[in-house]
């Protein structure tokens, strides 16, 4: 199999299966989470706090008072990584073409140099966050295999994308295939790893906000 055949496979059958497993996996997990349900809370709410869940969805995006100073690496690193990742995924012209082909919607792209800088920022942030995770005793204790797996699954598409854009390491066709394979690996494993927070983050924030509201610590 030559490199172009590999790329055709990566864009074809491999991508189809990855997307099928991704879509089925995400819906399955959502059903699983919602289907499990919660026991009805029969206690009288301590405070009457309508909308506490919805407010928490937004307020948790900002660091609570004092925490930014205590944990600057986690917060700044987290922001830089996520914003860099979103800019790279959503505003690189070839990526928009992908979404356009699949869903029939498109939007203006950013200049490639800006996307490139975003990808570099995200990669650097990921590396800093990994170093912090390893050197910080609390984080290290809290980290398990799943955390490191999620880190690697996220880094690979960014790294291979950067290398293929700059024609580094391997020949371009091969590198582009590797980029697609890394994205496909991410798609397949996303529903079944901690990366599922992509879909569950706002659900769990709402739930936390709502339950804490009922317990008297409304946001």
């Amino acid at each position: 199999m030559n490199h172009l055949d590999l790329l055709t496979f990566a864009r074809g059958d491999a991508l189809n299966w990855a997307l099928i497993l991704f879509a089925a996996g995400v819906v399955l997990r959502l059903f699983e989470i919602f289907g499990l349900g919660r026991k009805a809370d029969l206690a009288k709410p301590r405070t009457n706090s309508p909308g506490s869940g919805w407010r928490t969805v937004f307020t948790r995006s900002l660091p609570p008072q004092g925490l930014l100073n205590r944990e600057p690496v986690t917060y700044v690193g987290g922001y830089v990584f996520h914003l860099g990742l979103f800019a790279t995924i959503l505003f690189f012209a070839p990526h928009i073409e992908f979404f356009d082909d699949l869903f029939g919607i498109s939007w203006p792209n950013l200049p490639s140099a800006l996307v490139d800088a975003s990808a570099v920022a995200a990669i650097v942030a990921l590396c800093v966050l990994l170093a912090h995770r390893i050197t910080n005793p609390v984080k290290r204790m809290l980290s398990g295999f799943g955390d490191y797996l999620a880190w690697a699954l996220t880094l690979l598409p960014l790294l291979t994308g950067y290398l293929s854009f700059h024609h580094l390491l391997f020949e371009y066709t091969l590198m582009l295939s590797l980029h697609l394979f890394s994205v496909e690996l991410l798609l397949v494993l996303l529903p079944f790893t901690k990366l599922f927070h992509t879909f569950s983050v706002f659900i769990s924030r709402w739930y936390n906000g709502d339950i804490f509201g009922r317990k008297g610590t409304a946001s």
Binding site: T8, R11, G12, L15, N16, L19, P94, H95, E97, F98, D100, D101, L102, F103, G104, L176
Partner: peptide, 10 residues
Amino acid sequence: ALSMPVSATA
């Protein structure tokens, strides 16, 4: 385009 899927559809 090269970045488009070969055959995947919505």
